[in-house]
């Protein structure tokens, strides 16, 4: 049973957050379940262990629980929650990097991908993404994996639009630098996609 009647996804999220701010645990649980899959899939691209994904999601929703009264509804609830997850993940990933060094490719779980996508491209992407600075990779993932707009990413990351543009530019440039050595020629890739 839902906590509040559903109108639209955004309005429903707003209603739930109002209820959370009033101390309604059921509303928090409903919000948690509705965001868990999206956040888990996003976060699992950065950390191979589910325990880490789970910890980041739960830390995110602890902040949602504690700070819901401060939310002013100037942005979408989804942008706010993903922004909290972004900052929580950023802290966690920096900590992991400091403690354990860069993750090896073998640490990542096997993934099932579009069968039409060439193995060569997947391998190149895996290697290339691992080598990006975390802020640049998160920007790319927010745009390509999560489908957020430039303005939404600026709100999520609490950065000016210009910074997001710069991160995106550098991420794309660096990925392409790895292309000739890791994944074949740019020409071959572009022809495959035509």
């Amino acid at each position: 049973m839902t906590v509040l009647a559903k109108n639209s996804a955004k309005e429903h999220d707003n209603d739930l957050l109002v209820a959370v701010a009033a101390g309604n645990r059921r509303a928090l649980e409903e919000l948690y379940v509705s965001y868990h899959r999206r956040l888990a899939r996003f976060l699992s691209r950065f950390t191979p262990r589910y325990e880490n994904v789970e910890e980041i999601i739960n830390d995110t929703f602890m902040v949602v629980w504690q700070r819901s009264k401060d939310f002013r509804y100037a942005s979408q609830v989804s942008t706010w929650i993903i922004g909290i997850a972004y900052r929580t993940a950023l802290k966690s990933l920096r900590r992991q990097k400091n403690h354990a060094g860069a993750l090896r490719l073998d640490d990542y779980p096997e993934q099932t991908t579009d069968p039409t996508l060439e193995t060569e491209v997947r391998d190149w992407l895996k290697h290339g993404l691992e080598r990006l600075p975390i802020e640049q990779r998160l920007t790319l993932e927010l745009a390509y994996h999560m489908g957020h707009s430039l303005e939404e990413i600026a709100a999520i990351t609490e950065c000016p639009v210009g910074t997001v543009k710069a991160r995106m530019f550098h991420a794309r440039e660096k990925l392409r630098q790895y292309l000739p050595t890791l994944g074949g020629s740019a020409c071959a890739l572009s022809m495959r996609d035509e």
Partner: peptide, 18 residues
């Protein structure tokens, strides 16, 4: 076309269901 390859590669979903 090149960027579309990157985009499609990153859109690919994992088979793991959380």
């Amino acid at each position: 076309a090149l960027e579309r390859s990157v985009y499609l590669g990153m859109r690919a979903e994992t088979a793991v269901e959380y």
